[in-house]
Structure formats: C-alpha cells, structure tokens
C-alpha cells in the first residue's frame, strides 16, 4: 500500500470587500488548501491505482478540517466548495482522478449542508502551474450566485514525481452577485441540484 508523503502544504484565505461596487460590511471569504504529495505511480504505467484512493482519505479529511479552521468558520457557514489536482510531468491525468473520492467526500463529511456534487478540474502541469478550481454551492448546484473559481498554484510544485491536491471553500456568493438565476434562498435541498 503506497504511503502518502507530504512535502509541503499551503493555506490561503482571501477576504473580498468590494470589486468596484458597494463596499460590503461582511467580506466574502474564500479559502484554498493544497498539499504537495509524492506520486507513487510517476514514471511508468501502473494499471491498478485505486488502492491509493483509500490512502488519501485521511489527508482529505484533515485538509477539509484545516481549511475550515483557517477560514475561521463553522462547518455550517461553508456555502461553496470545489476541488482539483495538478499532476507533475512524470504522472498521467488519471492520477489526478484519484483525488475525486477522498477530496470530495471528505468535504461533504465536514460541511454541514452538502448535498451537491463537488465540482472539479485537473491537469498535468509543470512546477508553478496554476489551476482554476471551480466553486459551486455546496447544497444545490444550480445556485448561480455561488458559481466561481479560485486560482491555486505553488511556485515550486508539482515536481515531476509529485501531485498537488487541492480543496477550496467559500462562505457566500460572489461579492457583487447580480446575474439572476436561482438564489440560495430558494434552495429545496433535496437532490443536490436545486
């Protein structure tokens, strides 16, 4: 069973007060956490890679908890989320897909109202590559005010035999949200969509 080896982590929290419009008393808070881990399958084709999913679960859970703590939020205050992975040049895109279950279900375990699927992006990239990680409402994917994305990257990662695994969360809608569509106040919260 491959071991999860973490080289470094970064946590970033962004408070947005305005974007040219009215200044909000309560800033829109967006957080991202990324771990740079060794890719146990780098450098060759390995057919059976699913055991690593199980190995990644404790890391996913810890990252979800650490991110909420860094955002100074309660699990009930998280309204949006997303996930992503950047695979170093010695790996293949499919290695990034190993993050779907440990990344997604760890957040859904921790975030209180989280019926919605966790949106994601992934790619193979060089050191310093940046990934736009999509954000959607955690309880209803159709809520338009919460569609967003957070750019995440680390200047010295991922190296060829590494992967960057990422979780992002937000505490509300875009700061000047006014493009119509379904509102968070209209959520039924049954099917994860509406």
């Amino acid at each position: 069973m491959p071991e999860v080896i973490v080289r470094k982590t970064i946590v970033s929290v962004e408070d947005i007060f305005h974007e040219g419009g009215p200044v909000s008393q309560k800033p829109h808070r967006r957080g991202a956490i990324a771990a740079v881990i060794h890719n146990p399958y780098a450098g060759r084709y390995v057919e059976e890679i699913t055991p690593f999913i199980e190995d990644l679960k404790p890391l996913g859970l810890k990252m979800a908890q650490d991110l909420i703590a860094a955002m100074g939020a309660k699990p009930s205050q998280i309204e949006g989320y997303g996930k992503g992975a950047i695979v170093g040049s010695g790996g293949e895109l499919e290695h990034g897909a190993l993050w779907h279950a440990p990344g997604g279900y760890s957040m859904r375990e921790v975030v209180e109202n989280s019926k919605a699927i966790v949106a994601s992006t992934k790619k193979v990239g060089a050191v310093g590559s940046r990934l736009d990680v999509p954000v959607t409402h955690a309880n209803a994917s159709y809520v338009r005010s919460h569609f967003d994305s957070i750019e995440v990257g680390i200047n010295d990662a991922p190296r060829a035999d590494e992967m960057l695994v990422i979780l992002v969360m937000t505490t509300g809608s875009r700061i000047h949200s006014r493009s119509g569509g379904m509102l968070a106040s209209e959520i039924k919260g049954e099917d994860g969509l509406k």
């Binding site: 080896i5 973490v6 080289r7 470094k8 982590t9 970064i10 946590v11 970033s12 929290v13 962004e14 408070d15 947005i16 007060f17 305005h18 974007e19 800033p27 860094a70 680390i154």
Partner: peptide, 12 residues
C-alpha cells in the same frame, strides 16, 4: 478591496 493570507508549511 481584498486581503489575502497564505501560509506555507514545508514538511520535506
């Protein structure tokens, strides 16, 4: 307009 904090932690 915005404030961002980033914490980097090196394990290896």
């Amino acid at each position: 307009r915005k404030i961002s904090t980033v914490v980097e932690e090196i394990h290896q």
